[in-house]
Design a protein around this nucleic acid. Sequence first.
DNA 1: GCAGTAGGTTACTCGAAGTAAGTTACGAGC
DNA 2: GCTCGTAACTTACTTCGAGTAACCTACTGC
Lengths: 197, 197
Amino acid sequence: MPKAQRMAQMLTVAEEIFAEQGYLATSMDEIAERVGVSKPMLYEYFGSKEGLLIGCIHRARTELREKTAAAISGARNPEEFLRLGLLAFFEFIDEHRRSWALLRQEAAVAVPSAQEEVEGIRQQQTDMIGAVLASFTPDIDPLEAEAFAEIVVGATERLAVWMERRPKVGPALATDYVMNVVWPGVAMKLPEPAPHA
Amino acid sequence: MPKAQRMAQMLTVAEEIFAEQGYLATSMDEIAERVGVSKPMLYEYFGSKEGLLIGCIHRARTELREKTAAAISGARNPEEFLRLGLLAFFEFIDEHRRSWALLRQEAAVAVPSAQEEVEGIRQQQTDMIGAVLASFTPDIDPLEAEAFAEIVVGATERLAVWMERRPKVGPALATDYVMNVVWPGVAMKLPEPAPHA
DNA sequence: GCAGTAGGTTACTCGAAGTAAGTTACGAGC
DNA sequence: GCTCGTAACTTACTTCGAGTAACCTACTGC
């Protein structure tokens, strides 16, 4: 099997097993076996167990970025921008329930570099939100804008975890909850009273 | 050395080394050596490496609960309640910068039971916030109240991490930021227009 | 002065990450 | 239609660290 295809397969299998059992409890031999290949192949392509984990996170991150970019491209005002971005995120999580737990929870633990990958995901989010604020209300205190972005990301992540325990709460409702809490505080800082498009 | 004292010392050393190097990169031999004792003593008192980690988290959790309880005991209205609780949290984080990274990031990774300990911390927080809302606005939708609590906890955690990158932002300012964003959305649901005590 | 136990150690096992060295499949050039 | 190079793969290790068995020692109450 060609390299690219094999790597993709390895990532898929690894993501699944990591999510099932946790990073620590999973052995490279086990992943190799389930891929149908021997352990050194994993090392050939990913360098280390940590490298494999990072590969999983990186792929998810890329996918999330693309979906979000597509979702927000049509927004015309900051509220819509934020809402569409949040919705894209929650939908992504909803589709990846299992892997999500892994990427968020497991990754953090082990390796500094996996940590960085995860932070990269958050960076994407905070940058996006920061950009919304800055473009629509240029006179906002930059530090406060940054804090706001972090708050929204934190709230969103937490609600994503919560969503898993509350099956009745889907992406749309989760988005509403975040917007309800967070938007009034922002609208007060906007130049015009937040036009509803 | 008596058991209780030795255990406390072990926790202190473990917390420090885990925070420095990460959970995975730390060996039990290393911790034992720095404590000045042999490895089986760690196993005698904590059962496993995971047990040791959980011990660290548990101790921090207990301390946080006590500080928070003390801080909010004097609050007279929901806004003050929330503000004092947030402040206590940020101050706790501020005092434990190093350990904080560990408890939040490392714990998640490894072990299901460590995960539970960390969730226990969040549970404390969400329960507290949920209680505030419920007691002051009894007619709120319970699911929405829960969502709100999760949002506040997520926002707070995220801002705590951010605080470490922004040394100028201390507990007081962090509390303000969270309140600024989050409070207007809640105040709208309160029976009276949120009296400032 | 002796018994029991709290606090401690040395010296192992075992499993999993990571590696060295070698093997097979297969397309390009003659 | 053979052969050379390389991409894809394997077997058989080494190494390191979690966890354990078995044994030691000093103090405390009787």
